[in-house]
Nucleic acid binder design. Sequence first.
DNA 1: CCTTTTTCATAACGGGCATTACTAAACCAC
DNA 2: GTGGTTTAGTAATGCCCGTTATGAAAAAGG
Lengths: 203, 203
Amino acid sequence: MGRHREFCVETALDAALCVFWRKGYEGASYADLTEATGVERPALYSAFGNKEALFRRALARYHERYLGYLPEALRLPTARQVAAHFLRGAVELNTRYPDRTGCFGVNGVLAGSDDAEPIRQALIEYRATGEAMLRERFERAKAEGDLPETADCATLAAYVMAVTHGLAVQAKAGFRREVLQAVAEQALAGWPENARSAAAHDS
Amino acid sequence: MGRHREFCVETALDAALCVFWRKGYEGASYADLTEATGVERPALYSAFGNKEALFRRALARYHERYLGYLPEALRLPTARQVAAHFLRGAVELNTRYPDRTGCFGVNGVLAGSDDAEPIRQALIEYRATGEAMLRERFERAKAEGDLPETADCATLAAYVMAVTHGLAVQAKAGFRREVLQAVAEQALAGWPENARSAAAHDS
DNA sequence: CCTTTTTCATAACGGGCATTACTAAACCAC
DNA sequence: GTGGTTTAGTAATGCCCGTTATGAAAAAGG
């Protein structure tokens, strides 16, 4: 008995998930959550518990609603296909929704409140300058015949930056150094070579 | 004339830099900053301006004090060496100081206050399960002869996760989809092959 | 020594946060 | 229809945040 709930719990959870995706855990306030869900604060508390519990529910829902490509990838016959499907699925998901780019999990603590937007922009620019330096250096390498004519310097620079960011996230997660070193070595396995550079390697 | 400053500005900046490195921009409170620097709030304000200005000063100092390996890398003769030095330098820096692992820039908005520690741990575990699934899948691939006997499945899994995290960070930074797709393709360039898998490729 | 100037530390300020009393309304059982 | 029970929405609570007013302490000039 008693009064009926006037909102759909799953719908509200989906809306909350989008807010967390965009703003991260700490960046999402209850003001944001009530606005997005159309549900007042006390109702959110009674339906989900506190903010942390709500975020965990959102994480679980993210997994079941957006990460279907992951089991898909794991079912493929070859490891290369698995990795390819995994990476392509991540790219697709990270860019599909313009209002919530990136990965829910990474953003979860990478994103922050709106007040931190200038700082976020400063860091983006900072990383962009580093990437630009890398790209210019690679272009010089191509001119010098150190990279093949077919090499895409911008992509190589972005790739190196991506691996670096991935390493940073993993280091933050407590990965042991040897693991990270192995990852870095693996990242170099596909480095483009031409006849000349293939002749004499470092290390 | 007037009273002398009783603390060293650069020393205080170094201490503040460590706090930001560990806790990120929003996660670092003035309570943390005063404790780490030994300088009271108003003195920090008079010396550096507000929190945002202090963070920018810390970022600049991070660049000059910790990123020396970057110009080092750029000076090397081959692109492969540049990338190798870059990645190895990042690994070294990301793991050198146990009290502030990871990258200042990435942590800057990835890290958060201490209250968010359970959430951070939950996300770490979540990513770890995904990585474990990937590793098991690769081990199966090795048993099936799809990966060479020499393949290190744990490293391959960590590598794929790292690239995925890097892609997420870049997507968050507003990278265009084509760029990310090129990065993902590049990440597959060094995928280990054996005679059998080299024979018949997908895509 | 006294005035002026700068820095110091305590303590306050307004604002936003997560969380929760509290009251009115809606519903079911009887 | 009435009583018991659950939800809705307003508004309050306490806390911590970044920032700053306030007045004492210290240094230099005359």
